[in-house]
Design a protein around this nucleic acid. Sequence first.
DNA 1: CAAATATTTCGATATTTATCGAAATATCAA
DNA 2: TTGATATTTCGATAAATATCGAAATATTTG
Lengths: 86, 86
Amino acid sequence: MNLTFKALNDPTRREILKLLRKGELTAGEIADHFDIGKPSISHHLDILRRGELVTSSKNGQFVVYTLNTTVLDDIMTWFINLKNDE
Amino acid sequence: MNLTFKALNDPTRREILKLLRKGELTAGEIADHFDIGKPSISHHLDILRRGELVTSSKNGQFVVYTLNTTVLDDIMTWFINLKNDE
DNA sequence: CAAATATTTCGATATTTATCGAAATATCAA
DNA sequence: TTGATATTTCGATAAATATCGAAATATTTG
């Protein structure tokens, strides 16, 4: 859970998650949406992966990233527990 | 929203939020639950306040902290949009 | 007013983090 | 195999963060 919250604590990474709402994207396609270098994006993707917010798979020379909705459910449960006491 | 996610990115601060589920607490009562110094807790509380996750009010010589559930709703909406939308 | 208590601010330090350009790795295409 | 493309790893640097002890501020109590 710590790695997940850590991954969420960056505007670029949250923007990446929004991009992935509509479907999977390659690392390059994701990088094209930002003004920062590809090594930085690669690093952000690694942090999102370690926080289990995305999964990745290799398709030829491309690496495809996908939103992992399972962990989103876990996070929402965390917040619901915070609200509904006990 | 940035300050809110930032505030959530620390185990001590998330633990403070859990303590506040059952009702408001003074800064000192919160500090008593942890092994770190009061200045550090005060700093964490400040970050939680700036992230609007808690509100504070002064009661005599005590400062009372309360969970702000409004922002919790906002965060959950953010996650729901990430899951469902588009 | 003076002493005691509660909390925060200050100044410093050690750790973590985001970013970069260059280099390394992997795959595809000619 | 050679050259081009996609992505990551590496090494470095600058900025942000958590923590601490000491000092400052505010309030209550004697």
